[in-house]
Design a protein around this nucleic acid. Structure first.
Lengths: 232, 232
DNA sequence: GATGATTTGTACGTATGTATA
DNA sequence: ATATACATACGTACAAATCAT
């Protein structure tokens, strides 16, 4: 009975909750790039005072999801076309690094799990919906990040993916993109399973490059962004 | 006459100044990992109220320089040995990516500037002090980051270098390390000048790995950390 | 360009949670 | 284990800067 009184589900402080909610809304496009975020408005919406709102905005700005300037209203982060390209470039390098390490370091169990997930997804290419494939896709890349056995690298990759997501629209509408995505994944998995780190890195890099090209990017002042954009 | 009243040197808000000062003190070791950062103490030290102090701490926490927990005093970030290794690993990959792009994209002027800086530094190996070489070293890596023509990648590399610096001690005391560092740089520069991106990436990667091994790391509760640790 | 309305920046007080005797 | 001391989380008030007219 020396159990902590703290609940198992760490609700966190008011600020943390706001950060989670707002980040989710921004990533999912409920709040579009350029949308105003005035402090009193948010305070009223969340039923709190301006103090926690300000701290939440500071944290979101640190994540790159909102832009703040002294004495000016905060807005949901906008982005230039060239910067989005830069972020995809960086993501390609980060995923390549993850794949390289994964090929060297994944345990037998991890390799098996990745292989299993990948094989199971083959059915989705034919029968599944776009959303199903996206859900799988997120899990695939999560396994890849964790397989590199480097928490910091994983954080960089995750954060970059997170920051890019508000500016991507679903790309699987492109004809045949789903099947191509699967065969690109296949190249990555095959290389990892046989421990060929350079091939894995190269496959991961070109996968992101292809995805970037296949994605319909949008940059600054797009009226609506209701589409999901979780997967890559 | 329509000149902005705002001074050319952007002083910024109180919070920004505090962030700069505190980050500098943490990076330079004036405040060592584990040092307490209580809000009232900082507020008195800076002559401000607790509100801006809190926001500054939030920002520093987002940079990874301080650790915050609800209802508990903030402390200068500590780190585990394995995490430090992870950060060096990631830095090696980031610098390798920068070098790869630099080999492909640097303008003639940029290549010339890098070559010039590198050649000039040869004298420092023999005659210069450790501090001189460190100052050069920072400029060298800055040119490398800028040469990749990717602002986002540059930011990731810079931020990582920044975060690692509180936990590194000067490494140039190791016998012959200075000359070795120079020849490692030489391999990078040579590869970039002849546009060999893979060789440049590999040279940059192994340079960071070597530096990591040569550095005397310290992790959690080290009493003093007065040494400079700017260069790599 | 000046003025009023609105919004942000900072100070401070109180309640709540955490650590220490 | 209880109580005391202390630090933080949030609310409220005022000052300063920005924007619109």
């Amino acid at each position: 009975m020396s159990e902590r009184k703290r609940p198992l589900v760490r609700t966190g402080t008011t600020v943390d909750q706001m950060v989670r909610v707002l980040a989710d809304e921004i990533v999912h496009g409920t709040r579009a790039p350029g949308d105003k975020l005035d402090e009193v408005g948010l305070a009223e919406a969340f039923g709190v005072s301006r103090t926690p709102v300000r701290e939440a905005l500071v944290q979101l700005a640190a994540m790159g999801l909102v832009q703040r300037a002294p004495n000016r209203r905060s807005v949901v982060a906008t982005i230039t076309d060239s910067r989005l390209t830069e972020m995809f470039e960086a993501m390609a390098e980060l995923e390549a690094a993850c794949a390289r390490f994964a090929a060297q370091r994944m345990s037998a169990a991890e390799r098996h799990a990745l292989d299993r997930l990948h094989r199971d997804s083959a059915a989705l290419v034919r029968t599944g919906t776009k959303d199903d494939y996206e859900a799988f896709n997120v899990r695939f890349h999560t396994l890849l990040y964790e397989g590199c056995h480097s928490g910091y690298l994983r954080e960089l990759a995750t954060a970059t993916r997170f920051r890019v997501s508000p500016f991507r629209r679903a790309q699987f509408r492109v004809a045949g993109r789903l099947g191509k995505s699967w065969s690109e994944h296949d190249a990555i998995v095959t290389a990892i399973l046989r421990g060929d780190s350079e091939a894995a890195a190269q496959a991961a890099r070109s996968h992101v490059v292809t995805v970037s090209a296949a994605s319909a990017h949008f940059v600054s002042s797009v009226p609506l962004a209701q589409d999901r954009c979780a997967g890559l």
